[in-house]
Amino acid sequence: MIKFTALSRVSLRNGTFLAAALVAFSAPAMADPLTVSNWDGYMAPDAIETFNSQTDNEAELVLHATNEEIMGKLIASKGAGYDVVFVSSPFAEVLHNLGLAEDLDHSKIPNISNLYKEATELPHDPGNEFSIPYAWGTTGLCYRSDLVETPTSWNDLLKPSEDVAGKTTMLATDRWLLAAGQLDLGYSVNETDPEKMAEVRDLLIEAKKTLLAYDDTTFYAKLVSGEAELVQAWDGWCNYGIGENADIKYVIPEEGSDLWVDTMVILKASENKDAAYEFVNFVLDEANHRWAAENILYKVPNEAAMKGVDPALLETFPNMAFKPEDMLKYEQLRDVGEAQRDYSRIVSEIKAAN
């Protein structure tokens, strides 16, 4: 029997498990636990139980709060102790570049055929050689249409009118915070030129003076209450606000968006590769994957799953109906290598500025 573990987006638990090999007379040693790291609430509450019953595995879920948290653990352990991890695509690319990601055998993932063609052509991993996309979407502006005019530009957020100033929020995570400034200035969301990034820094320092908060998790609640009127948001999280107040809308600014992709990666250090493949294939089952679209309100790159989504849901949350070919017009966040240190330094300077 294979034991299973996973991680979470909101809460933190110790995701390291030590399995002692038990030898009794001629009985074989027990396999080490299979560990899957995921964000909290990112798959069905009974997904692990269902996986266990359908595959005769014994799985447990362990949670990580952020990409950075799980990456720190994976890099420190060289992937040991984990088998499948859910991480955003730039971090999947880092795992690959560090030699920690398994080169995938597609013959062991038959449900990979459920993916949209576009989901097999993502710039960070053409052909899904080391990662399988789980959810994808855009980043834009989420706003109260009854309180503000429809925003059209990132500038509407970064240099808001007097009546909106103090009622805006931006994402706190480094890459997305910087992307708003990069896009506003017409630069790549992977820009690394020091002079251009200095411009981005200065723009975001000025924008900070008009912000209510940096907020990755409760910005939609601030919109619902009216405390905020215009926020930077991932499309799926904006949907949580739309579900509570129909006056909340989502728009991609004229300068564009990033294309964000959350992925599943099997670790090269995994000692439970067959079970890891079974789990990835289980997630890609159209009914299992559809749960994510219908319950966390994120688009999934699974064509078979999305075809079964209730059309009424797409009407209520229009960004869920974005076509894959249109999303691929936007630039993916990529691994920027050593420049990530510069990104972190710049964000620290922005947040420390008065």
Rank of each mutant, 00 (worst) to 15 (best):
L115R: 04
Y116K: 02
E118H: 05
A119H: 02
T120M: 11
L122P: 05
P123R: 04
P123C: 09
H124F: 14
G127K: 03
G127I: 10
E129I: 05
S131Y: 13
S131G: 09
I132P: 12
P133D: 00
P133S: 02
T138H: 10
T139A: 11
L141R: 11
L141W: 02
L141G: 13
C142M: 05
Y143H: 12
S145R: 12
L147N: 15
E149D: 15
E149S: 15
P151T: 15
S153H: 10
S153Q: 08
W154A: 04
D156R: 09
L157M: 13
S161C: 11
V164G: 09
V164R: 07
G166P: 06
G166R: 01
M170I: 09
D174P: 09
D174M: 12
W176A: 02
A179I: 03
A180M: 03
A180S: 15
A180V: 09
Q182E: 13
Q182M: 12
Q182H: 09
L183F: 12
L183V: 10
L185D: 08
L185Q: 07
S188R: 01
T192R: 00
D193G: 03
P194G: 03
E195H: 02
M197I: 00
A198N: 01
E199K: 12
D202G: 06
L204I: 02
L204F: 06
A207S: 14
K209F: 02
T210N: 13
T210V: 04
T210I: 14
L211Y: 09
